[in-house]
Amino acid sequence: MQRRQFITLAAASLAAGVAGAYAPQAVARRRGAQAAVHAPLDAAAYRATRRYAELPFGRIAYVERGHGRAALFLHGAPLNGYQWRGAIDRLSPYRRCIAPDFMGLGYSEIPADQPLAAKDQAAMLDALLDALKVEQVDIVASDSGGAVAQLFLLRYPKRVRSLLLSNCDVEPDSPPPKIQPVLDMARAGTLADATAEWLTDRAKARATFGAAVFADPSRFADETIDYYVAPLVATPLRRAQYHAFHLALTPNPLAGIEAQLKRSQVPVRIVWGAADDIFDQADAEYLDRIFPGSRGVRRVPKGKLFFQEEFPEVIAEEARRLWRV
């Protein structure tokens, strides 16, 4: 593959103090939580924690940590739930944190004929919450996971307490133009081969994809690359599903939803990486404008598409502010 084409692929990211005083009860929860902090989730710990839910959609991989009200973390592409490990470390004292792997990405195992469109991902999440006996969730989402979050809100509004959205699809920008080279490679059947190169050339992974989606690509660790890439290219079926996931991003899965979102009263907070050039910076203001329950926009100055990995403390701070814990 030409280096320029690979860099274009990477640039497209393969799709990249709480205000106010707490009530006494919240203070008590916080103090109790601080005494029960888990060890940080590295790749080995995350792998050991991984569970599977047997659903009509297949075996859906997920990680769960914490207790109480549930929070649902929705990842981007080509990532999986491991994207949220830092936020889960910080938020599991306050929420039952659930991070599934989407169908076609990560470690979820699905049949060959399972559709992978955003609406199907939303239906899978509904079934997963049923299986886990979860009534309502606070959703934290990024990238294509943000598209699924918006559809989930419209299809299952009673299941959503709040939305925290970071750089993600919006109706006028889904999929964003910069991922067209990725879609072309998926259509040509070459995307999996290009991604598999990262397993043997991690320096290339950091210099291309890492540089496109992280402020400091040197922190894109070998174990992280392996955890993301290995399941995507493990078998011919998984490679085909990786391609199919991307092809399902068109036509625009969010077409026609704006009017419905304008009627939603769910609290929404937008946290946007200001250095991201894959999703338009104006998309943050768009979300702020259309959601009546918007709590405004916070810009992360150095944040690129997947800043949630580098700055998990920002996600945790904003989530706790939104949840008032």
Rank of each mutant, 00 (worst) to 15 (best):
H38F: 00
P111V: 14
D184F: 15
G296M: 02
R31K: 02
E135S: 08
Q150C: 09
A212K: 13
V233R: 06
R85W: 01
P111H: 06
A240I: 14
A15T: 09
G66S: 03
W84V: 07
Q308K: 01
L74H: 04
L132Q: 08
I257W: 15
L129R: 03
A188I: 05
A131P: 07
E318T: 03
A275L: 10
A39T: 05
V300F: 07
Q5K: 15
A255S: 13
V297S: 00
R295K: 11
E64P: 03
A35I: 14
V297E: 05
A221P: 00
G20W: 02
F209N: 03
S166G: 04
A45Q: 13
L9P: 09
A44M: 09
T200K: 08
I257S: 15
A43Q: 09
D280N: 02
A192M: 09
Q121A: 03
L305M: 06
Q25K: 00
A33Q: 08
A141P: 07
K178H: 14
R51F: 01
R321G: 12
G256P: 12
P292Q: 14
T49A: 11
A244F: 04
E318L: 00
Y156L: 07
K158M: 10
V314Y: 04
G104Y: 05
R95D: 00
R298H: 01
A26Q: 08
S13I: 01
A212G: 13
R30I: 01
Y156K: 05
R321L: 10
V213H: 03
A141E: 11
W323S: 02
G106M: 14
L116A: 05
F220I: 07
